[in-house]
Design a protein around this nucleic acid. Structure first.
Length: 202
DNA sequence: TTCTCGATTGTCT
DNA sequence: GACAATCGAGAAA
């Protein structure tokens, strides 16, 4: 199946791109172990105007410099000292947009993911949530700034397309006070999918 | 150099 | 439902 082309990641509309990533296949080849799954939950981080983004207001640091690169690479970082979060950098250079991958539905290497998660049987929580899915797929900060057209981590399009009425768009909680920010951060997930993290109630 | 806190999750009550 | 675990980035000094 074809990997998503470089041009796909150059879109300036990170919100729309976050929607389009739903249904795509995310793969990692770590230490010779192949794992992959269907993306079922994403969250858009709209660069300098997104208050929740690391690059908010043009903040540029060694860590966030990855987000300023041209789209089509990964952005991985450690949160709470425990969890690795996997993002896809999008848009052109110096436009720090990113999409956080929050949930996948495992399709390849399920047993490997179970072992990494130290679980004995498949369950929804295996890959539901950004920290959990990163652990399941063996993602760590060594995967930061990797080319998504490379052979360690990549995304394929196998034609899966969720109907629009199955895709839920949920604004981030706690931004009601700031009307200009209320539109910016968006979370998207597939309705009723067991591999979506908590805010699955609708 | 030092201090605070986070794009979270799992466990205990 | 509430809270602890845990460490590196970012900001201040």
């Amino acid at each position: 199946m074809p990997k998503l082309p470089f041009s796909f990641y150059q879109q300036e509309n990170v919100v729309q791109l976050a929607v389009e990533l739903l249904g795509k296949q995310l793969f990692t080849l770590i230490d010779g172990k192949l794992t992959g799954g269907t993306i079922v939950e994403t969250e858009a981080y709209n660069g300098v105007i997104d208050k929740a983004s690391h690059a908010y207001n043009g903040r540029y640091t060694p860590r966030t410099s990855t987000m300023y690169e041209a789209g089509g690479i990964s952005y991985v970082y450690l949160c709470y000292g425990i969890h690795h979060l996997f993002n896809v950098v999008t848009a052109g250079k110096n436009n720090p947009h990113a999409v956080l991958i929050r949930g996948i539905e495992p399709t390849i290497g399920v047993d490997i993911m179970l072992a990494r998660r130290k679980m004995s049987a498949p369950a929804g929580r295996m890959t539901a949530g950004p920290g959990a899915l990163a652990q399941a797929m063996g993602i760590n900060k060594d995967l930061n700034a990797k080319d998504l057209l490379g052979d360690e981590v990549w995304i394929e399009d196998n034609g899966i397309h969720f109907p629009s009425d199955q895709i839920i768009a949920a604004p981030r909680v706690g931004v009601d006070y700031a009307e200009e920010h209320a539109l910016l951060p968006w979370r998207f997930f597939v309705k009723g999918n067991p591999y979506v993290s908590k805010p699955n109630k609708f």
